[in-house]
């Protein structure tokens, strides 16, 4: 299978590989998988609790080149967005950017699922409090 240049680039030089502590203030973690191909993807966001802006994002993916590229791209796109802005990222945006062929679309779906899961986890852990309160309770 011929990968697009962008996929190869993300695969060879993945951006933002790594992880944050799960319970670090402002961190939301999404762990998703695709049973049919065995891919497992972890994507984390670190939100500034005062501004609601995603300051950093990290991922670690065990899977094919397209899955790695999709999650790598997702972390790049997440940084600098607010939580609400992050929620509008669609798998089709990833497909277009990486020129994924039809058989690899499920990799982009997995990345979108990971973003949603990370945002949901963030909201569960930190989103119920007003940003300033969350910061105060995190530092106390």
């Amino acid at each position: 299978m011929a990968y697009s240049d962008k996929v190869v680039d993300h695969y060879n030089n993945p951006r933002n590989v790594g992880s944050f502590g799960k319970d670090t203030p402002g961190v939301g973690t999404g762990l998703v998988g695709a049973p049919e191909c065995g891919d497992v993807m972890k994507l984390q966001i670190k939100v500034n609790l005062e501004t609601g802006v995603i300051e950093d994002a990290k991922f670690k993916t065990f899977g094919c080149g397209s899955a790695i590229a999709s999650s790598s791209l997702a972390t790049e796109w997440l940084k600098g967005r607010t939580v609400d802005e992050a929620a509008v990222i669609k798998n089709t945006d990833i497909v277009t950017e990486l020129k994924l062929p039809p058989v690899k679309i499920h990799c982009s779906v997995l990345a979108e699922d990971a973003i949603k899961a990370a945002l949901a986890d963030y909201k569960t852990k930190w989103g119920t409090q007003a940003p300033a309160e969350a910061a105060a309770s995190a530092s106390s």
Binding site: L31, V32, G33, P35, V40, K42, K60, F62
Partner: peptide, 15 residues
Amino acid sequence: PKAPPELLEEIFELL
């Protein structure tokens, strides 16, 4: 389909 989250976590750690 959803595998239990604990299994996914376990597999992730193993990988």
